[in-house]
Design a protein around this nucleic acid. Sequence first.
DNA 1: GCGATGCTTCTGTGGCCGCCGAACCGTCCC
DNA 2: GGGACGGTTCGGCGGCCACAGAAGCATCGC
Lengths: 234, 234
Amino acid sequence: MPNFVSANRIAEVAALIGDAARANMLSALMGGHALTAGELARHAGVTPQTTSGHLTKLLEAELVALERQGRHRYYRIASTEVAQAMQALMSLAAEGPRRHYPVGPREEALRRARTCYDHLAGRLAVGLADAMAAQGFVQIGEGAALVTGEGRRFLAGFGIALEEDGRARRPLCRTCLDWSERRPHLAGRVGAALLQRMLTLQWLARRPDSRALRILPAGEDGLAEIFRLPVDQL
Amino acid sequence: MPNFVSANRIAEVAALIGDAARANMLSALMGGHALTAGELARHAGVTPQTTSGHLTKLLEAELVALERQGRHRYYRIASTEVAQAMQALMSLAAEGPRRHYPVGPREEALRRARTCYDHLAGRLAVGLADAMAAQGFVQIGEGAALVTGEGRRFLAGFGIALEEDGRARRPLCRTCLDWSERRPHLAGRVGAALLQRMLTLQWLARRPDSRALRILPAGEDGLAEIFRLPVDQL
DNA sequence: GCGATGCTTCTGTGGCCGCCGAACCGTCCC
DNA sequence: GGGACGGTTCGGCGGCCACAGAAGCATCGC
């Protein structure tokens, strides 16, 4: 029959995500942290044994990957492809009937700054992308972003080396549509590097048990001075 | 609870796609043609009444949109967001155990040139992207592409006007990872415009009942002369 | 008007799958 | 060692949902 990337395989993986418990687990893993089975069970709101079943399925389908460490087993998103698919589904889910979710304090923290798999999201990320674009470090198109030569130098000065691998067309930068802001922000290799660097510089800190990020004093200063991004306006 | 883009909503839409029949329908619609319920029923391999049920669900979730015309009802993908999600899931599904699908002649035609929702895909699309990048009309990054000033002029000469809407950050061009080539090609507004223009110029023709495209003689000439893309090498 | 066609709604049936209780296996700590 | 704890496997139950048969409702042709 006509379809041969076998729409059936698409259905398989979509069905895998299309279960409340598993979607919650994957969603939790989108925070970028590797989590143990128990933590995932709590996130999903089901018993450990049920969780275990789900995890084996996700493992077989290579949607998540496993790392053992002593008696703990850490699960994480298996690949950026998976993260992208989840991202696309989030955007889709965030559309629709525009439900009025009451904005609690926790949600407010998430809207302000959070991780999205391996990069920044939230108002901070959108503001950062805008600020860098304004200074000519990146060019942002629809679903697309490129680092300029100037931007490359700027990032190098900030401690991020974009290895100049031979093929000029390779490296760089994607954008990722933020469900809370409905605006693009920087993802891809550059996005991941920015998050990492800001964590090691202690500009930002992960909150335990949440995708939300705290902006530390050093971060407020650094973002304002180096990135020309006044954090208090976020 | 922690998750609040409600992973449950993600699960809902994923589950919607995660059914073989519905996935086949959506997959068929990814060809870019609007299809009738009957055609979709045939694609999915189920009876019309079952199809009807699926379609109401897809409609409610706004994954597909409906256009009535006499006693026919034409269904199409509702938005680019949906198309992107499907695209991401295809990439994911195409990964994995790398099954050996025997490559039939039909599949070969698809690998060569086909539509992907509203733009080109297959070797033709990848080659086109490469050729345009080589001539400096676009810059292609990872998951990202931008049209240069030169490219803008080139496209204008080819009959594609990229309206310069005020906000400089808006328009342009995405890339889309091709499952068959595992390489990016041009999507977004530019990708759609290129496909449209080549269809109206009769460079390409849609095949009935398939996503595959035929490259017409005028297309062979034009692609070689204007885009510097020798089609016979695809 | 008539029937034919395209599509839908209604209804019942069947199967798959997510769920938990219980038991089992491994790792850590003292 | 023993015991606690993190994880997994097994078995049986329950509910949801995709499916087709039959009937209903539009639109087309004559």
